[in-house]
Nucleic acid binder design. Structure first.
Length: 562
RNA sequence: GUCCCUAUCGUCUAGAGGCCUAGGACACCGGGUUUUCAUCCCGGCAACCGGGGUUCGAAUCCCCGUGGGGAUGCCA
């Protein structure tokens, strides 16, 4: 049973609106995922809008990467994507309309000669009957009397006492100051804006005051019900008018974004909570353009260990990096969906349809989440473990091709049967696909030795035993080189030398594979084959000396603490 | 400075006033299985930021702090 696909009767339409900057950040991916989940869970539409107005960074290559990333993750979308750059005339037209209707004005500051003036959207003065604005009551604010206070249709500018009474510049749109009155230090009223309103708005009158030490006004605030965070609000007297068209006539993000949301008939904007401040202003823009503001859901950010936005410095950030390291798209999708959201019943590993069915915006957390790569790796390993062996082999093969892993490709090409067998043995211990780089010991050729393993497991006595095993193994016919016989021979030597059963396994493993852990040793030996095993046993390198780092680490360990 | 958002184990989270002796997962530590490792199973460690209220009762509601983040652009 699916949730109804409508809000107030309108079918759900959400969008993913990334800027194509070459790489797709995990934060953006998660935003896309939440949008997608919401659309799919409500039988709504998931749309894409490429916000490519930053021409410096937006290249066709970047756009291509973006779509490639979405398809990799299985983020299928419903209508033809739109490109913001192609909608320039619409944006400029909207700005002209705002100007014509007196909802915007030209010029903000004194501009340099010869340069045009920006178009500025005015936070509307008149808000009676506006369902997004409410009154919060009378407030009084201290003003620094030594600084000038000016009022005109563009807003109020003054200074307010900060720390140590030091005047801090303050400016805001006029819309926040209904019923404004200015007072001097001795409590005398200097100005009552009510009577001056006509002059300010119709004759562009400007007022200047000195020695104002207090102002009172009726505070009003813009508010909306965020589907994630609940009711959010901001006083109008803390807001400024915003530029919608630059001096050169190009639209800024706010205008383009709102126009396009209107054009795409977006019913719900799901985006990062770094946009909350924008939303307060966008609501007025929607209204000014005769459109109902969509509902909003602001997602908490993904942060690093220090609580800062997760960035390049913190490890993998881009979809491409996860892909190259061998994370599976479904695992990454699943993991990211669980950052800030949970189905509430303890389920973690879920399919896309399961997530879509369980997803709901009110269940999304309001607080930021840290990116824990270890948990992703575990989940990725689970996805790998649950593949059929054939699927795993195909996945590794595809991955090796895609990431141009020459060595791995050579193994596949030259020893297909052995490769398949190696994959079978390694699947359960693979967490990320790039782990396949470590499979070299299965195949003929030089192997690398873990120096620590070599030192620990191949001292003189065990080297002697290994040599004895080599001689025994050499007696085997090639077709007798089976796990059972190898096992029997090894156990036999241990018996005759009075060694504990199994004691030779580790030295033997290190001698042949270069490492001290891995799949069943005898199976591995059988796979590698008589010829190669004997070669390696004969060419055993000496144990390397302790490296300096390790020595100092050992010293630290042996130092009694406290 | 001002404004906005935010606060449960190290991490992701469950938690809608009494089901809470705060549950699960990852990580970590022990034990079992595996002659290793991994998987799997069992167990352990480990949290309600602080202070005030409201209430018979607060992790949960309110206020004030504090910490973290964001905004304060003719960036997106």
């Amino acid at each position: 049973m699916k949730i109804s696909g409508t809000i107030c009767g309108r079918p759900v339409r959400v969008r993913f609106a990334p800027s194509p900057t070459g790489q797709v950040h995990v934060g953006n991916i998660r935003t896309a995922i939440f949008n997608w989940l919401y659309a799919r869970g409500t039988e709504g539409k998931f749309l894409v809008r490429v916000e490519d107005t930053d021409r410096e960074r937006s290249t066709s290559e970047a756009v291509e990467k973006l779509f490639e990333c979405m398809s990799w993750l299985g983020l299928d979308y419903d209508e033809e994507p739109i490109f913001q750059s192609g909608r320039l005339s619409d944006h400029v037209f909207a700005a002209e309309r705002l100007l014509r209707e007196g909802k915007a004005y030209k010029g903000f500051h004194e501009q340099a000669q010869g340069v045009g003036e920006p178009t500025v959207f005015k936070i509307p003065w008149e808000t009676d009957g506006n369902p997004s604005v409410r009154t919060r009551g009378e407030v009084a604010i201290d003003v620094s009397p030594e600084e000038k206070l000016t009022i005109d249709f563009r807003g109020l500018t003054c200074s307010v006492p900060g720390k140590n009474e030091k005047p801090m510049p303050f400016s805001a749109s006029l819309a926040g100051f209904h019923g404004l009155r200015l007072f001097s230090a001795d409590g005398r009223m200097l100005f009552d804006m009510e009577s001056a309103l006509d002059g300010i708005f119709h004759e562009c009158k400007s007022h200047e005051f000195f020695k104002v030490s207090r102002m009172t006004f009726e505070r009003r605030e813009v508010f909306f019900d965020d589907m994630v965070k609940g009711t959010l609000s901001k006083p109008l007297d803390t807001m400024k008018d915003l530029v919608v068209l630059r001096s050169d006539g190009s639209p800024v993000f706010h205008l383009a974004n709102v126009c396009d949301d209107i054009a795409q008939q977006i019913t719900c904007v799901i985006r990062g909570d770094d946009h909350i401040e924008n939303t307060y202003r966008h609501i007025f823009l929607f209204q000014a353009l005769s459109s109902d503001a969509p509902s909003y859901a602001h997602l908490p950010m993904i942060v690093n260990d220090s609580g800062k936005p997760y960035s390049k410095r913190d490890g993998n950030v881009f979809a491409g990096e996860f892909r190259e390291q061998g994370f599976l798209p479904d695992a990454l999708f699943n993991f990211l969906a669980l950052l800030g959201w949970s189905p509430g019943d303890g389920r973690e590993k879920m399919t896309k349809p399961e997530m879509a069915a369980a997803f709901s915006l009110p269940r999304v957390l309001g607080s930021p989440a840290k990116f824990d790569i270890a948990k992703l790796a575990k989940l990725n390993g689970q996805y790998i473990a649950e593949m059929t062996t054939q699927h795993f082999i195909d996945t590794i093969a595809g991955f090796a091709k895609e990431t141009a892993r020459e060595r791995v490709l050579q193994w596949m090409l030259n020893h297909p049967a052995k490769f398949a067998k190696a994959a079978t043995l390694m699947q359960i211990r693979t967490r990320i696909l790039s782990d396949c780089d470590e499979w070299g010991f299965f195949f003929p050729g030089t192997i690398t030795y873990d120096p620590k393993a070599l030192r620990k497991n191949l001292r003189e006595d065990s080297r002697d035993a290994i040599e004895a095993l080599r001689v025994i193994f050499a007696e085997f016919a090639a077709d007798e080189f089976s796990a059972e016989r190898l096992e029997a021979a090894t156990r036999g030597l241990e018996g005759s030398r009075g060694l504990k059963e199994g004691l030779l396994n580790r030295p033997l493993r290190v001698a042949v594979t270069g490492r001290d852990s891995g799949p069943d040793l005898m199976l591995v030996l059988e796979m590698i084959g008589k010829h190669e095993v004997l070669d390696r046993l004969a060419a055993l390198p000496p144990a390397p000396p302790l490296e300096e780092e390790e020595i100092s680490a050992q010293k630290q360990w042996s130092t009694p603490s406290g």
